[in-house]
């Protein structure tokens, strides 16, 4: 029981450590590549989203590696029905 709990916590801890390391790099370089609106944004903004980057790093990493250069636009039946593309 205790060993199992220690394993769970260790995995959780490793996830967060990777997230923290990733967050530092992402907030310094990556963020402007996945969202142009973040280009030149103040340090306060970057600190504010730091915890979220630590928690959701796999998603942002996939966006960064996948070369998506802007946030995805949302989908709903009107946007899909219109062909989806922005004018």
């Amino acid at each position: 029981m205790i060993t199992f709990a220690k394993w769970k916590l260790a995995i959780f801890g490793i996830y967060l450590v990777i997230g923290a390391v990733f967050a530092v790099v992402f907030l310094a370089i990556g963020i402007a590549r996945v969202d142009p609106a973040a280009k030149g944004s103040p340090i306060g903004f970057r600190l504010l989203i730091f915890p979220g980057v630590v928690a959701l790093w796999p998603y942002l990493l996939s966006r960064w590696i996948g070369g998506e250069h802007a946030p995805r636009t949302e989908r709903n039946s009107h946007r899909d029905g219109s062909g989806g593309a922005d004018q």
Binding site: V34, D35, F45, P51, G52, A55, Y59, L60, P71
Partner: peptide
């Protein structure tokens, strides 16, 4: 709380 900023709203998309 950590995804409450508009950055997350845009990057995760509203839905």
């Amino acid at each position: 709380a950590s995804t409450s900023h508009d950055f997350w709203l845009a990057n995760l998309s509203a839905p």
